[in-house]
Design a protein around this nucleic acid. Structure first.
Lengths: 155, 155
DNA sequence: TTCCTGAAGTCAACATGGTTGACATGAGGA
DNA sequence: TCCTCATGTCAACCATGTTGACTTCAGGAA
């Protein structure tokens, strides 16, 4: 966590704009950073990082999710999932149990501790969004959502 | 580049929303992905990736930048810069020369080939933004910028 | 002039997070 | 019984970042 470099990186006012959309491009970049910075710092204090949070986030919103579905949603390979997932299980932030009937798949759930960490990390991100939305009002927020949906929809 | 996983990852309609801002959180995530997906695919075809593009992007907008300034803007250590930078120099996408008077620092510039790649990669990203802005009109685009500025400004 | 300092740059070792490939295990259906 | 398929694991590899320890060299101080 190079604290010093962040401030420098966040306002590269010195970059010439070669295209009219360069400002938007950079806003996307620094917006992403702005949203995740505090959350990442919090996670690092817990010895976790972004991929762990992604797992916790999804499992929180899909209790009893199977590993296969988790892989699909996260968009990574099962081998890549393996290490962070095992860490979360070891730390007892997640539990895995096999359901009586569907014995083939493990079902994942957050423990209380896992819920707490997921919530706090996500809260850092939501706080940033909330403050930004507060600054621009409801219509601005709605417009933002519209643009982001269009961007996310590209593929 | 796991092409298959992208589609699955992009529309996790199945995730329950635990908080009112969860939708915005996910939009930021998938928006970032949406913007960078094609650009990253293009870069990968060139044997490059995001950090290389970042370097090319900055140098394009700051010809004759010194390495120290580049480090500062990118927010990474000089050692982390070293490998991708050298690759770009080897590939002759960048040139470095020492100025006659300020002999202490190397000045970086894009070659024609470097300019071409920077432009094409950035064009992929700008295309996504442009299409999204077109969908929502000028006021929507302005609102989006406002929100993103507020988010980027957090730190 | 010589010497020292400090910025710039490089090299080595390491951590992390991702990839593929190969394979083991074990439940459940044909 | 046997095959299939989800799960789990191991190994090798790659890319990107980190820190620490150097080298190099311009330019000021002694």
């Amino acid at each position: 966590m190079a604290k010093t470099s962040q401030a420098a990186g966040l306002h590269p006012a010195s970059l010439a704009k070669l295209h009219d959309l360069d400002a938007a491009l950079e806003l996307m970049y620094y917006g992403w950073r702005g949203m995740t910075l505090e959350a990442d710092a919090y996670l690092a204090k817990q010895g976790l990082s972004r991929p762990h949070h992604r797992i916790l986030y999804v499992v929180a919103r899909r209790p009893d999710i199977a590993i296969g579905s988790l892989i699909e949603i996260l968009g990574i390979s099962k081998q890549a999932l393996n290490r962070p997932l095992n860490l979360l299980l070891e730390r007892k932030l997640l539990t895995s149990k096999r359901s009586p009937e569907q014995h083939r798949s493990k079902l994942l759930r957050l423990t209380a501790a896992g819920q707490r960490i997921e919530q706090r990390a996500s809260d850092h991100e939501r706080k940033v969004l909330r403050e930004a939305f507060d600054r621009v009002g409801a219509t601005g927020a709605a417009a933002w959502m519209g643009v982001m949906e269009a961007i996310a929809d590209t593929n």
